[in-house]
Amino acid sequence: MNEPSSTRTTISNPYLYRLQTRHFLLFDVLPFFGVAAAIGFLRVHPVGVAELVLLFVMWLVTGLGISVGYHRLFTHRTFKASASVQAALTIAGSMAGQGGVVSWVAIHRRHHECSDREGDPHSPNLFGHSVLGRVRGLTHSHFLWMRRHEYPNIAHYAPDLLKNRWLVKVARPYYYWVGLGLAVPAIACGLVYQSWAGIVSGFLWGGLVRIFVLEHTIWAINSFLHMYGTRPYESRENSRNGGIFALISFGESWHNNHHAFPESASFGLDWYRLDPGYWLIRLLAVFGLTWDVGLPTTQRMQAKRTAA
């Protein structure tokens, strides 16, 4: 007798696999060609200040949407936020092209539940410890797992989001938000240069190149930081810190800290560890837009300290 779909933790069927393949090709493979096209287009239209500013601004907005919105707010509920902030973070995170917020949250909660064990969607540590096994693991966890995988049941993993009808309504037009994230830099650059070449250049650099850069930064957390780095805190999986990448990852690279204290809005934990995502949460708190910001107690941190 088949298990009722409402009680399954994961769902697999040909329709979902087709959706996964389509998303993988559009938003994970296509940006590779976008980078190549951007480099080739330099012969037609040299990159200028406008493209670089748009690349940076769109990377910053969408990266904070993923780190602060998708991850710290919606997945782990490490703080509370006003409806306007929730909407802004949902739209910014959607423009990153890494999946709709409900699916993203379900996948990430599944990752924490099964981290580095059978059932983890993107562990690099399930292919053995040989050189070939490590290469296969890194390739799988960094990129290839998105081609086709068991889909975490959103009714099981994200019921809190599904009950928030207003948030679901904001998140539903996911592909339109991704399109907006591509259209904004294209239009802005077109206005700056007053040419079709400017539109194409803005689309490439502020759109596809930006998606490529952000994706591989975030994916490196799943892959390399579950295999290499430091482990200052005890955690049941193989999460690691990579502090050298803290700024460009919005603080996400304090990955061992995060797995040890998933309820913490601060991933750096200490004031001197760079954590731009946490800085934004604290800035919004000054204006009363975020509150109940979670942090582990000193006693709990000391209890989890490793000998190293």
Rank of each mutant, 00 (worst) to 15 (best):
S5C: 09
A88L: 12
L280M: 00
R77N: 15
A307C: 09
I154Q: 11
F212H: 10
F261K: 07
M58N: 07
L204C: 07
G97R: 01
H76M: 07
S130A: 05
W59S: 14
V286E: 10
T7C: 04
I221D: 13
Y175L: 08
G137M: 03
A92F: 00
N256C: 07
F79S: 02
A87C: 08
F27C: 13
A38C: 15
G207E: 14
E237S: 10
F74Q: 06
L16F: 15
S249W: 06
V85A: 02
G206M: 09
Q302F: 08
A88Q: 14
F127P: 04
A106C: 01
H142S: 12
G179C: 10
L52E: 10
G202W: 14
T306F: 04
H71Q: 06
R109L: 01
W59A: 15
L214P: 12
R109K: 01
Q302G: 14
T230G: 07
G277F: 00
W219T: 04
F261T: 05
L52S: 15
N257L: 09
H122A: 03
K163G: 13
W104Q: 00
K169W: 02
I211S: 14
W104A: 04
D120P: 12
G48C: 04
Y278C: 08
L132Y: 11
V68W: 08
I39Y: 08
W219F: 10
H258F: 00
D270L: 05
G243H: 02
T9K: 12
S123V: 05
A87R: 09
M58E: 15
Y157P: 11
R305A: 13
T217G: 03
K169N: 11
T139S: 10
M95S: 03
R77F: 08
R305N: 00
S103H: 13
W104R: 02
N238V: 15
R273S: 05
H111F: 00
G34R: 01
L42W: 13
L25F: 10
G99H: 00
V101S: 01
Y228I: 08
G128I: 06
R273G: 03
P46F: 07
L162F: 15
V213C: 07
H259K: 06
R134G: 05
G181S: 08
G288E: 15
D270T: 10
G40H: 11
L204S: 07
V200H: 07
G34C: 00
W254N: 11
V85L: 02
A308L: 05
T139P: 15
K169I: 03
A88M: 02
E51L: 02
L191W: 12
G179H: 12
V178Y: 05
F287Y: 14
L161Q: 03
L73A: 07
V102T: 09
K304N: 08
G294M: 15
G100C: 05
L274N: 13
S264P: 06
S103M: 12
F287M: 15
P46T: 06
L283F: 13
T298R: 05
V101M: 02
Y151P: 00
A50F: 06
I91E: 00
L52G: 07
M95H: 01
